[in-house]
Every structure is written in structure tokens, then in C-alpha cells.
Simulated scan of single mutants.
Amino acid sequence: MNRLIACLAFLLITLTGLSAKADDFKLVVLGDSLVAGYQLPAGDGFPEKLQKALTGKGHSVEVVNAGVSGDTSSGGLSRLDWSVGEDADAVIVELGANDALRGLSPETTRKNIEEITSRLRAKGVEVLLAGMLAPRNLGPEYAEAFDPIYADVAKAHDALLYPFFLEGVALNPDLNLADGMHPNSKGVDVIVDNILPQVEALLAKAQS
């Protein structure tokens, strides 16, 4: 009987420990206005809706909104250490849209995205790169230099890739705010639905 009680106590402690570990799992979304909830009601931003979707699928994870409107890849790199705490287990990096809108050098964007990814991976943090595409009015040469950045960096640093963060939303007036660039609440829903499988793959990779 004493042995049975001891085994049950050990099992309870083990399960409690696993539960605490799961509850403590932290996913940080490092990005710009596309994830910061720009002009959206409270709770309608990407991190908040992603949190709800993950919870609905049984994942115990805290999704942290580290989005700053107007941020470039340089801005994200400069605030990396205080935006992504030591307790972060995984990070979604969504940066570069403002670089392209401003016509900044793709080479600079590449270096920044690579530095962010490399520093996170060096700390054992799993990364999902949410890619961006250059506006086509900047010309084919710019697009050819900018578009491959995310796939190249993901491959080089064993990070996961979601090729285009605005997939299914870009240029659709029904899914964007009046400015035509930022997703509305329905647009965020589409983004969350589309990226969710890759986010679940990120969680599985980080928890393995």
C-alpha cells in the first residue's frame, strides 16, 4: 500500500510539473503594425486572436504582443533584447514590411532579419519567420533582392517559415482597413487561420 501511495504521489508531482511547464510556455510575436493591432478594437489584434485559436485547440501557451507600429527590421533588432525576454520559448518574427514600403536596402533588411534570427537561435529559442513581399511598384530588381530574404534566413538558421504573412488578405478591400495596407478584424481572422498550422509546428518543435 505504501508503495502504491508513493507511486501515485510521484505521478501527481510529475503531472503537476508537466502542467506547470506547459502553462509557462511563452510565444512572443515580434513585429510591426501588422501585429500590433493598428486601429483595431482591443482583443482583435493578431497576437490576441492567435492566443484564442491556440487555446481553442488545446494548447497551453501565453502569446505576447511585441509589435510596434512603424517598426523596421532595424528597429526590431535594436529592441530585441528587451522585447523578447529570457523566458521566451519561441518567437514569430514579422518584420520588413516597413523596410519595403520605404524602399530601404534589401541587403540591410537581410542582415537585420538574419541577426535577429541568429541571436534567438543561439539562445535555443525556436523561430518562425513570417515573410513579406516587396511592393511591385518598386520594380523587379528590388523584388528579386527582397522576396527571398525570409526563406534564405530560415534555411540557414533552422527556423520555420511562413512565406507571406498577408497571404489571402493583401489587396482584398473586404479584409483591410481603409488604408488598404492593414488587416481589419476579418483580415486578422484569415491570417490566423492560414498561419496556425505553422505556429503549431513551431510549438511542437520548441516543446520537443
Rank of each mutant, 00 (worst) to 15 (best):
G31V: 04
D23W: 10
G75Y: 05
E107Q: 15
S78H: 12
D23E: 15
G85P: 10
P106D: 07
S69D: 08
G56D: 00
A90F: 04
L34V: 08
H59E: 13
E107W: 08
D24G: 11
V28T: 14
N65H: 08
V84N: 13
G58H: 06
L50F: 06
E94H: 11
P106F: 11
V84E: 06
A36L: 11
V29T: 00
R79C: 09
L104W: 01
W82R: 00
G85K: 13
A100G: 03
L18I: 09
Q39K: 14
A97S: 08
G85F: 07
A90P: 10
L77A: 06
F25W: 13
L40T: 03
G67S: 02
A22W: 10
V64W: 10
A20G: 13
L104G: 02
V61A: 07
S19L: 15
K49P: 06
A22L: 15
Q51R: 06
L30E: 09
A22G: 12
N65Q: 01
G58Y: 00
S83E: 15
T72G: 06
V61S: 11
D89M: 01
A36C: 10
I92V: 12
D24W: 00
G96M: 07
S73L: 08
T108Y: 09
S60C: 05
T108L: 12
L40Y: 07
K52M: 00
S74G: 15
D87P: 11
R102K: 12
A20F: 14
S73A: 04
K26Y: 09
L54F: 01
K26R: 14
L40G: 11
L34H: 01
D89L: 01
V63C: 00
D71G: 06
S19R: 14
L15H: 13
G37C: 04
A88L: 09
G70F: 02
A53H: 12
D44P: 00
E94N: 13
Y38A: 05
L15D: 07
P47Y: 04
Q39H: 10
A97E: 00
L54H: 01
V68S: 10
S60F: 06
V93D: 05
D99P: 04
G37L: 03
N65P: 08
G76V: 00
E94I: 12
S73M: 02
L30P: 13
A22N: 15
E48Q: 15
A20Y: 13
Y38D: 00
S74T: 15
S73V: 02
P47V: 10
A88Q: 12
D89Q: 10
V29W: 00
L80E: 02
S33L: 03
F25T: 12
N65I: 04
L77F: 09
N65V: 09
F46K: 04
S105Q: 13
L104V: 03
G67R: 06
T14M: 13
S83R: 14
V91D: 09
V64Q: 11
G43Q: 01
V63A: 04
E94D: 14
L54G: 04
Q51D: 12
A88F: 12
V93E: 11
S105W: 07
P106K: 01
T72A: 07
V63E: 04
K57T: 08
L104Y: 07
E62V: 12
